[in-house]
Amino acid sequence: MVGMEIAGNTPRLTAREAGLVACRSCARVWTPDHARCGRCGARLQSRDPGSLQRVWAWWIAGLTCYVPANLYPMLITDTLLHESANTIVGGAVEIASHGSYGIAAIILIASVLIPVGKFLAIAFLAITARHGSRVDPGKRQHLYEIVEFIGRWSMIDVFVVAILSALVQLSSVASIHPGSAALTFALSVIFTMLSAQSFDSRLIWDDVRARRIAARHRKDVSA
C-alpha cells in the first residue's frame, strides 16, 4: 500500500480550504467559478447544502415503507393442504420451528437487523454531521462505507420472493405468490439507498477541522 503525501507534508489541507472545489465523481479539482466539472461533467459543489435535507427526506420515506413491509405478508404459499401467508418475521419463526435455526437467523439478520441498523446508522451520521460528535471521524466514515456497501444487499429478500414465485408454480400441489410486503420492502431498500447516497461524507470531516480550529482559536484568545 502506497500512501500519498501532500507536498511539504504539513497540516493537511482540504480542497475547500485551498479555495478549490473538488469533483466527487472523478476527484479532479477546480477553481470555484466552475459550476460543472470540466472533465466528467458532474455538478460541482464544495459542500452540498441540501445534502442532509435529502438524507432525511429519503430516510423518512424508507421508514414509512418499512412499517407495512413488516405488517403484510411477504410470501403466500399454497400447498395441497393449506394456504399460508407469512410476514418477514413470521416466516423466520416458522423456519425456526422446523428446526433450521441457522437459516432463520440469517433471514432475521438480513431483513430485520440490517434494515433497522441502517436506519439508525444513517440517522446517527446525519445528526452528528450537523451537531458534531466525539466519535472519531474515521470510525464514522467507516460506518458510512458499511451502510453504503450493505444497503443494496437487502434487495436479496425481494429477489428470493421473485425467484420462488416464478419457480414454485406446480398447479395445485404447491405454488408461491408474492405478498404486498415485497413491494414495500423493495421501496424501503431503494429509499434507504438513496438516503445514504444523498449524504455528503465530507461533512463528517469538516466538523473535526472546524472544532480543532475553534479550539486553537480559544487557546490563542485565552493566552
Binding site: T14, E17, A22, Q141, W205
Partner: peptide, 12 residues
Amino acid sequence: LIACPSCDALYV
C-alpha cells in the same frame, strides 16, 4: 491535484 471524494483532503 487530486481531492479525496470522501473527505475532501487535497493531494498532489
